[in-house]
C-alpha cells in the first residue's frame, strides 16, 4: 500500500470572487504502516486534503497515486478506493442513520458489494475491534453516548476493511477519558491490525504521544513534515502559524535556560520525566 500526492492543487469556487486556493502544491508520500498526524488550525486545508485521499474532492491539478495507479484515470474505481482508504468524519451524527447499530455498520460493506452474510461478519468484526459492548449492538445509534457513537462511526468504516484509516478530529467534544479511549483504540488498530493511520487534529499533545510522523499545514501548504521531535524543535515557527509544541517541550527549554542539562527535544510526558530526573541531584 502506498499513497503518493504529486503537486496537488485545489481551488474552491473557481472563477468567482470568493475563489480560495485551499491546497497549494501538495506533494508527499504515505507508506504502508505509517502513523501520521496531520496538524493545522481551522482553514489550513487539512480537511480538504483528506477528502482528496479517497476521491471525494477532485484536485484542480496534480495527481494522486494509490498503489501506483492514478486515481484520476478514466475508469478508475473510486468506490473500491473508498473502501481501501476509509475516511471517518468529525461528527458521527453525520453518518449514523439506521435503526440499530449493527445495521448501520453493515451499510458500508453492503455498498461495496459484499453479500448480506459477508457484510454481517465484517460488521461484527468491526464492532468487536472498536470494543463496543455486545449489548449495544441492537440499540438505536441515536441513544448512544458521544464516545460510543464515535466508535460506531469508526466501525462503520472499518467494516469495509480499509488499508488506510483517516480520522478527522476523532476526539472533538469528548471528555479526557473519552479522548484517551479513542486514541488508544486508534493506536491499537495500527499496532495490531496493521492499518495505516492518518490522524487529523489541532491538538499537539494528543498527537505527540501517538504518531511517528507529523505533517503541519498552513494556508493550504505543507509547512513542515517530519518526526514529532523535528517538528516541535521549531516551536516558535509553529506559534507563528497559530499552533504550539506540547507544553512539556516549553518546560524543558525553560529548565535548560536555568542551567539544567535536560533533553529539549522531549515531546512526551515520560520522555520529559526521564530527562528531568537524569538532570537533577535528588
Amino acid at each position: 500500500m502506498s499513497i503518493i500526492l504529486d503537486h496537488v492543487n485545489y481551488i474552491y469556487s473557481r472563477g468567482t470572487s470568493d475563489e480560495v486556493k485551499a491546497l497549494d502544491d501538495i506533494s508527499f508520500e504515505i507508506k504502508d504502516g505509517d502513523f501520521i498526524g496531520l496538524i493545522g488550525h481551522t482553514g489550513s486545508g487539512k480537511s480538504t486534503l483528506v477528502q482528496h485521499l479517497d476521491g471525494l474532492l477532485k484536485a484542480t491539478s496534480g495527481h494522486i497515486y494509490y498503489n501506483g495507479e492514478d486515481i484520476y484515470d478514466k475508469g478508475y474505481n473510486l468506490k473500491s478506493l473508498r473502501s481501501k482508504v476509509g475516511l471517518v468524519f468529525q461528527y458521527p451524527e453525520h453518518q449514523l442513520f439506521e435503526e440499530d447499530v449493527f445495521k448501520d455498520v453493515c451499510f458500508g460493506p453492503k455498498n461495496i458489494g459484499l453479500t448480506e452474510g459477508e457484510a454481517e461478519i465484517a460488521a461484527y468484526q468491526a464492532l468487536k475491534a472498536v470494543k463496543l459492548p455486545e449489548e449495544l449492538f441492537y440499540v438505536s445509534p441515536f441513544d448512544l453516548s458521544g464516545g460510543q457513537k464515535r466508535r460506531v462511526a469508526i466501525a462503520g468504516v472499518l467494516a469495509m476493511e480499509p488499508e488506510v484509516l483517516v480520522l478527522d478530529e476523532p476526539t472533538a467534544g469528548l471528555d479526557p477519558e473519552g479522548r484517551d479511549e479513542i486514541l488508544g483504540l486508534v493506536k491499537q488498530l495500527h499496532d495490531e491490525e496493521g492499518i495505516t493511520i492518518i490522524l487529523v487534529s489541532h491538538s499537539m499533545e494528543d498527537v505527540a504521544d501517538y504518531v511517528h510522523h507529523i505533517i503541519v499545514m498552513d494556508k493550504g501548504r505543507i509547512h513542515m513534515n517530519g518526526t514529532p521531535k523535528e517538528v516541535f524543535w521549531h516551536a516558535s515557527d509553529l506559534e507563528r502559524i497559530g499552533l504550539a509544541a506540547p507544553r512539556v517541550t516549553y518546560i524543558m527549554r525553560k529548565l535548560k535556560q536555568a542551567g539544567y542539562n535536560v533533553d529539549t527535544t522531549a515531546t512526551t510526558l515520560s520522555e520529559a520525566a526521564d530527562s528531568v530526573l537524569g538532570a537533577v541531584r535528588l
Binding site: L56, R82, H94, N111, I112, G156, V157, M160
Partner: peptide
C-alpha cells in the same frame, strides 16, 4: 453528510428513480 456516506461507499448518482430515492435515506435521516 453526503460526503460522510460517500466515504462509506454510498452512491447518490446512479440507478433508476426508485434506487435513487432509496439512496436518499442515509442522507435524509441524519
Amino acid at each position: 453528510i453526503m460526503k460522510a456516506q460517500q466515504a462509506r461507499g454510498a452512491d447518490f448518482e446512479s440507478g433508476g428513480m426508485i434506487r435513487r430515492a432509496k439512496a436518499m435515506v442515509p442522507l435524509l435521516v441524519p
